[in-house]
Design a protein around this nucleic acid. Structure first.
Lengths: 239, 239
DNA sequence: GACAAACGCGAGCGGTCGCTCGCATTCTTG
DNA sequence: CAAGAATGCGAGCGACCGCTCGCGTTTGTC
């Protein structure tokens, strides 16, 4: 039972960013990149995406990433200060792309929209994104993600949660906030579970799982909004 | 895209089990254990359970496990041939306990049982087990579990899947096998997602999530069995 | 009490990994 | 075309990790 609190490992070093002069510019390095460099960065991120997806963050070695990109480890470290930065840059790019997309995926809380339609639209968009960028899932849901990425994921998750809550609260105005939050958590958890199943299959079977996930969410939420005007139509289509 | 297929790491060594004489006895070692030894083993497994739960399999170091148990690394390796064996022994013990329990959790497919009751009973049992043994979840669902444990988990998962399918097929006799399998997969996936949420909370909030998980499963399955005799009463309680 | 087996220790071996460094090559700029 | 910056390389450093080995201690047996 002795809860031993002090582990023995520490990070190799805590690099200090020598160019942090104290004028407000904490921005990017004044490093001049040539076109070749940008290409290398894209190459490396592409390779990192593959390696992270198949091996997970921790198990992915920087040497493997460099090799997958066809360069030497030294070259990799010309463009990224450390392994974490690779994951962060990759995560940032994917996160940016995602935010552009989901801004219009959950935002329209048009109260007249049928529940089924809203669910279908949101699920379709997110599934499409996650299928197109499988690295996103492993980077966000891996057990070993570095702190910075975990923060980003938490922020994204909180944001999704808030949006879902707003959407739900417009569907069921008379619900305790705690219940609302729980329901939103359940929705996201269910989506994640469905996503795993979707990603594990391909072709027609994958589509069938997408359908099943939509059904699941609709059936979960439908009884809650059963007495709303426009929604909850199609009373139990035998399917 | 160059799919690089050959990684560079290999296991430290592939220990050959020197006492594998060729008479059919591949059983356990003839090692005589003293009471002290059994106590140490229990201690080590307990410590390993903690470390695995908090750090995951790969990140857990054998030195950390030994330290958590208050012994030296050498002592640990007196009782376990390698790190994997620790996880396997722990997994085996938990698996055995689980099988004893879930034999009576999914087996009774009494077709007269209301759906809600069947779901409640199954969920309660599994939630109770997973809450009592949080190491089980991290060992089974970790991304880095060693091969032997993965096989055990696959076997368990397949077994649960089969049982669920049987249970479902008794509820909806006229369903295509593929749909049945998909529905069973969804049920297990949903349970796993709910379990994560349950484990992430405590006290009253945890109970609320358990309730929510039950609701979710019932609402998912209820429309499918809507035209059965005894079950699926309360046609959509507006609530 | 004598002897052997089981138990216990912890420095350290071989290995991988993240990352660095010295040096060569290619590009840009004047 | 020269100078210097950006790019590229790969051996290798330091740290950690799984695991071993030699040796000392405890326990069971006769």
């Amino acid at each position: 039972m002795s809860a031993n609190r002090e582990m023995d490992h520490q990070e190799p070093q805590e690099q200090q960013d020598p160019r942090s002069d104290q004028d407000g510019q904490e921005k990017e390095q004044p490093r001049r990149r040539q076109a070749r460099g940008e290409r290398r960065i894209a190459q490396l991120l592409e390779a990192a995406s593959d390696v992270f997806t198949t091996a997970g963050y921790t198990a992915a070695s920087t040497n493997a990433i460099a090799r997958a990109a066809g360069v030497s480890p030294g070259t990799l470290y010309q463009f990224f200060p450390n392994k974490e930065a690779i994951a962060i840059e990759l995560g940032d790019r994917l996160m940016h792309e995602l935010r552009e997309m989901y801004g219009e995926a959950l935002a329209p809380v048009d109260p007249a929209t049928p529940l089924e339609e809203a669910v279908n639209s949101a699920v379709d968009r997110f599934i499409a994104f996650n299928c197109a960028h499988p690295a996103f899932f492993s980077l966000m849901h891996g057990p070993d993600i570095p702190g910075r990425l975990a923060e980003e994921h938490d922020a994204l998750h909180a944001s999704l949660l808030a949006r879902t809550e707003v959407l739900l609260s417009s569907l069921l105005p008379d619900a305790a906030p705690a219940d609302l939050a729980r329901t939103a958590h359940m929705c996201l958890g269910v989506y994640k579970a469905g996503l795993e199943l979707v990603l594990a299959h391909e072709g027609a079977e994958r589509d069938a799982y997408v359908q099943e996930l939509k059904h699941l969410l609709v059936r979960y939420l439908d009884p809650l909004v059963g007495d709303r005007p426009g929604a909850a139509g199609a009373p139990r289509t035998g399917r």
